[in-house]
């Protein structure tokens, strides 16, 4: 078939009904504060990795919660586990424990 160069753009919608939320369920069982995040962004504001890369811990948490975990491994590699985010979170989300558990879950 002749390739005219047309493609169907991929759908950007979050289709919640179809998403797999196993990672979120796992994290919640390991670290109950996982659900307490109010998406304020203090963690990202203090994060050194976020200053130099497009890493965004707030968004990572949100996307895991929604079951959007396709790029998670490459995202996790940007975090240095310094724990600064843990110091600033107003909701006492144990961010570092979440990051550690994500690494365990994806086994690297």
């Amino acid at each position: 078939m002749i390739n005219f160069g047309y493609t169907l753009p991929s759908d950007r919608q979050i289709v919640y009904d179809k998403n797999n939320r196993e990672t979120a369920t796992f994290l919640r069982s390991k670290e109950p504060t996982f659900n307490s995040c109010i998406q304020c962004g203090t963690c990202t504001a203090t994060c050194s990795a976020a200053c130099f890369t497009d890493f965004n811990f707030r968004k990572l948490l949100l996307l895991v919660n929604r079951g959007e975990t396709f790029e998670i491994i490459q995202e996790l590699q940007k975090c240095m586990l310094c724990g600064k985010c843990l110091l600033v979170c107003p909701r006492n989300v144990n961010t570092r424990n979440i990051l550690l558990n994500l690494r365990l879950y994806y086994a690297f």
Partner: peptide
């Protein structure tokens, strides 16, 4: 829109 993800969302 899941405005914090910046993407439209649909769910049942």
């Amino acid at each position: 829109e899941d405005t914090l993800a910046g993407r439209p969302m649909r769910l049942t």
